[in-house]
């Protein structure tokens, strides 16, 4: 299974500098946090959906449809009990639901979904290397960035080995599906030990291969990836900054809120 979400397309969003994408997605996160009125949140969510379409990331939205739906549904059902508003609609003992808390709940559902959507757009358009490269350009030291990207890269490899190990042990009669929690924890050992040993061997081999290809984290190196900040990048960053500040201003003026909280 492929756990990476990157979709190899060539949209204007893909072509943006990774730095723009990193800062841009942070600005989007900020924007998502500003409003708690469902209508304003819906506008933000729709905007993200349009952006997703423009970046051709919708297949990943579809892949994550259950998670997105669950976030909206759960938060709409649960939030009303935790936020208190002035206009009561229904109450049962200490539990009460108000008009405002219900609206706030819908807004929170949209907010969570928007967070996931913004993250999805980023991951659908940015490869592991571009992300790392962006972080380096933003000042992260290379060895740290390299360790980070290699760790990300190894996840699917170890997941694949883990799947094989589970099958191998099931074939030997390991029953992973029954038993109470303690019995199940005991069954973890036949799976964890081979995976651990595999990880050590694999990492050691990787280290050898890296050194054999002249890798030396302390030394200067050049980059094949060479993203440039172009006009489009500055426009996007300026637009998002203005959008974020404008939203913040509106909210401080009292617009876009149903309850006086985040």
């Amino acid at each position: 299974m492929n756990i990476f979400l990157y979709l190899d397309e060539n949209t204007w969003f893909h072509r943006l500098d990774p730095r723009t994408k990193i800062i841009g997605v942070l600005l989007l996160f900020g924007l998502i946090m500003v409003f708690n009125h469902p209508l304003y949140m819906a506008a933000v969510a729709l905007g993200l959906l349009a952006l997703g379409a423009a970046a051709k990331a919708l297949p990943n939205f579809w892949r994550m449809r259950y998670i997105l739906a669950l976030l909206v549904v759960f938060s709409t059902v649960l939030w009303p009990f935790f936020a208190k508003g002035p206009t009561p609609l229904w109450s049962w003992g200490r539990l009460e639901v108000s008009r405002e808390s219900l609206m706030y709940a819908v807004a929170m559902g949209l907010r969570l979904a928007s967070f996931v959507a913004a993250g999805l757009i980023f991951l659908s358009t940015t490869t592991n290397e571009e992300f790392t490269h962006g972080l380096i350009r933003l000042g992260l030291p290379y060895p740290v960035a390299f360790a980070f990207s290699t760790a990300l890269r190894l996840v699917p490899t170890f997941a694949g080995a883990g799947a094989t190990i589970v099958q191998a042990q099931i074939s030997r009669g390991l029953d992973v599906e029954s038993g109470n929690i303690f019995q199940r924890a005991g069954k973890f050992i036949p799976l964890a030990v081979p995976l651990f040993i595999y990880a050590i061997r694999h990492t050691n081999m990787l280290a050898m291969a890296l050194e054999s290809k002249g890798f030396n984290p302390g030394e200067p190196r050049t980059w094949y990836l060479n993203p440039q900040m172009r006009r489009a990048d500055y426009i996007v960053l300026a637009f998002l900054t203005v959008l974020f500040l404008a939203a913040l201003f509106l909210r401080l003026q009292g617009y876009g809120q149903v309850l006086p909280r985040l």
């Binding site: 990476f4 290397e129 890269r153 890798f215 190196r221 050049t222």
Partner: peptide, 27 residues
Amino acid sequence: EAQLFSTSVELEVAFGPENLCLSRDEI
């Protein structure tokens, strides 16, 4: 399996020349 660690074929090949500090054109 253990030697490959990049997310694309071209970047895998680029890794060594990058370590040699070659120019982008040469890579």
